[in-house]
């Protein structure tokens, strides 16, 4: 009994620290690989860590007229992402502590909550640029969050459960031929959503170009420690979404669940992520940025896929 308790505790701790600590690394690898494909040298793969360290040391300034949500929002968002990282199977494919606190739908709603707090804190800043980012996010989020929720519904329909761990087990137990139609199209929709949520190229170019920024716009007035936390939250969000994409939709196989073997999951996840990074980098380097208003069309397409095949899933089921 106690043994099992210790095992779960170890799994929980390793999952949490793995997620929080390695999340920036993947962003770094992605940037480096992209630079290499574009025949540049590019920054070191540890650049995101250095950025966070640098911001941590700097002074934190608040714009005049900013409110308390602006000041404390980033901490709450970081907390929410930390919680999500404990309730979805992104490293260990068996339930751990906190897993019972929410199901798939709960996870999706936590994502929405984080987005909401981010918009609220952006509006509290009193800055035009941040309001711009908030307005843009708000006008796209009705489709992106809708897609996120319907995609999760689709997977729960396939496996008749709302528990992400059961879904992962079910899928990894099934061979490729067993994939259903709604799973294929839910994967497609979630893949499209992943690009939007993490600000990848056909939708948002990285950096501080005001013309096309959406998510980045909401970091505009942050500085010092708060900016570091926001950046870090961004990396964690990308890692969580990417891992859900990998473990629930795209590539659910190979995860180890028994006690000492679960440590093998760390290199396995790393390799899976390399696959995802490769796909992402290929798409990012071959596509041009869309016009801002086109993003709505893009998200509408993803939403259409998800909800259409959700409905077909009900009918075909």
């Amino acid at each position: 009994m106690l043994n099992g308790y210790v095992e779960t505790l170890m799994m929980t701790l390793s999952q949490y620290f793995f997620v929080v600590l390695t999340a920036p690394l993947y962003s770094g690898i992605m940037t480096k690989l992209k630079a290499m494909i574009e025949s540049r040298r590019g920054p070191s793969i540890f650049q995101p860590y250095m950025d966070i360290w640098k911001f941590m040391k700097k002074e934190t300034l608040f714009p005049r007229g900013s409110g308390f949500i602006f000041r404390y929002g980033p901490y709450v968002i970081f907390g929410i992402y930390s919680l999500i990282s404990l309730i979805v199977p992104i490293l260990v494919p068996v339930p751990i502590f906190f897993t019972a606190s929410a199901d798939f739908l709960g996870g999706a709603i936590l994502f929405s909550l984080a987005a909401f707090i981010k918009i609220a804190s952006a509006l509290e800043s009193g800055s035009n640029f941040m309001s711009l980012g908030a307005a843009r996010t708000a006008s796209f989020i009705f489709l992106s969050e809708g897609t996120l929720i319907t995609v999760f519904f689709a997977v729960s329909l396939i496996t008749q459960t709302n528990n992400p761990y059961v879904t992962n087990n079910f899928l990894s137990a099934n061979p490729v031929q067993g994939l259903t139609l709604e799973h294929i199209f839910a994967t497609l929709a979630f893949f499209m959503l992943f690009f939007y949520e993490t600000g990848k190229l056909p939708l948002e170019s990285p950096g501080l170009a005001e013309l096309g920024m959406i998510e980045e716009g909401m970091n505009y007035e942050y500085s010092g420690k708060l900016l570091a936390i926001n950046k870090w939250s961004g990396h964690i969000k990308q890692y969580i979404l990417g891992s859900i994409l990998l473990n629930v939709f795209l590539f659910p196989w190979f995860l180890q669940s028994s006690f000492p073997n679960f440590l093998l999951d760390i290199p396995i996840m790393f390799l899976k992520w390399m696959l995802l990074i490769l796909i992402v980098v290929i798409i990012e380097t071959t596509m041009a940025k869309m016009r801002l208003f086109r993003i709505l069309d893009y998200l509408a397409t993803a939403f259409t896929f998800s909800i259409l095949f959700l409905a077909f899933g009900v009918l075909l089921g």
Partner: peptide, 14 residues
């Protein structure tokens, strides 16, 4: 309006 067309189409066929 592509987005609105897609969504209306979706609603219609559903």
């Amino acid at each position: 309006g592509i987005a609105s067309h897609l969504l209306l189409d979706l609603v219609f066929i559903m």
